[in-house]
Design a binder for these strands. Structure first.
Lengths: 239, 239
DNA sequence: TCAAAAGTGTTTCGATTACACCCATGG
DNA sequence: CCATGGGTGTAATCGAAACACTTTTGA
């Protein structure tokens, strides 16, 4: 707070932040989003997407990359290890932040919730997984960012093998189907789903479940090598 | 250049620019991109995407929106009226500009080349339509931006009715097919293409061509009303 | 009459959908 | 033995793809 160094520019410049929509699946198989409760004004006490300022420097190497900033903020605020992270869109409406001109580059991340323990961030901000359907308002324009993220996720799980990133390394086909049903918000036919997925030959078997109260299911792993090879041969993932 | 006002910030801030990949169809039915030749260093004399700094202010209303900046730059530098403009992605690799930290929000635009006369920009920069296949190098990371834009365009014309924005208001089905073949870089079957498009019922007839040296074709207009109505009834554009 | 591009239907094949019952386990 | 979720195949329908010749105009 008592940083004495001042940075001078000939023209006004915006602040640039990253905000992350981090998706996970909660124990009830709901699609959930990691939110933090804001400690400071504005929107003090409101839920918001995790994020923060991109580190920039006026001299080479000029600071960190945008995706690096997103990963750093996620780790600082949540301890999350992200299985998949991609840029979503950039939000720059001049009045989106009451403190001044802030342009935010939004990222969408997917995590295996099982891998991940939510920890209070280093600002002691409260971090929590909230079912996406329970989110009503968020700070700034974060609700809009979330809307865009949900749309993108639903579109992209259909044509890219990213749904696996919401599950543990090993999962049953029913687990996978539940992920798709949560993201797409529509029930899928079990037999068709299973045969379509298996026909792709991009899963490898990993033994049977143990200790279930019901018939144990076959566990699978996403086989990235097989997937990459298939893509090279013209295969296109599609659900 | 002799602006005396200095803007002071506690932390360093990046410059933010917009860069535009403006697509059009040239008379040979090639997919073309509007480029400007750089007047200044760095990359003096090199071809680059049109673009420039986002106007920002430290006091409300804090300057212009990102898309507004893109439209403004396009008009200033090229006189182009854009039929379709959408945000593409944001490029923020720390070393992408040798002058310092510059984050660029890239936009993709489509224009009816017929509507549009290329004019030298107000910086007297040379502006020219170049066939996309003839572009070998560009300033900064603009080649990468172009690559992303081409991918996005090819993906999006398949599932959104944006191809019409590359044609005059009235066009024949053959014109439209040539647009798709240029964007997708693959030949399409004439009969299948025509019946698929007409089955959508989103075109309205607009009389016959005149003065052709061959059999005149039916002219069509994209019928946005019909399209919007169909979408509301669950229709999904797909080629 | 020639060149140039517009226009037109049908068949085949593969993919998508709909659908209902038995199985293995732990409690 | 019961509750729970895992696992399986076929028939019908729909949509996509392949394919070649005739028409109209201006030169």
């Amino acid at each position: 707070v008592t940083n004495t160094k001042i940075h001078r520019y000939k023209y006004p410049r915006p602040s640039v932040t990253v905000d992350c929509v981090l998706f996970g699946i909660n124990p009830k198989s709901d699609l959930s989003v990691l939110l933090i409760r804001r400690r400071d004004s504005p929107f003090q006490g409101a839920w918001a997407l995790p994020g923060g300022f991109v580190n920039v420097s006026d001299t080479p190497p000029y600071g960190e990359g945008l995706e690096d900033a997103a990963r750093r903020e996620l780790e600082e605020e949540t301890g999350a290890k992200v299985a998949h992270l991609e840029q979503l869109s950039t939000f720059g409406t001049p009045d989106r932040d009451p403190r001044g001109r802030v342009i935010s580059v939004a990222y969408m991340g997917l995590v295996r919730t099982t891998d991940h323990v939510v920890q209070g961030g280093d600002d002691a901000a409260e971090a929590e997984w909230i079912a996406e359907t329970d989110i009503v308002t968020l700070a700034f324009d974060h609700k809009e960012i979330l809307r865009v993220a949900c749309e993108r996720l639903a579109a992209k799980v259909r044509y890219a093998p990213i749904g696996f990133n919401l599950l543990p390394k090993e999962f049953t086909l029913s687990d996978l189907q539940r992920v798709y049903e949560a993201v797409l918000r529509e029930p899928l036919d079990k037999r068709n789903f299973r045969s379509r997925i298996l026909a792709m030959k991009i899963l490898q078997e990993a033994g049977l479940q143990k200790g279930t109260r019901h018939r144990p299911g076959m566990l699978y792993r996403f086989d990235k090598r097989a997937y990459d090879t298939a893509v090279r041969d013209g295969f296109h993932f599609e659900i």
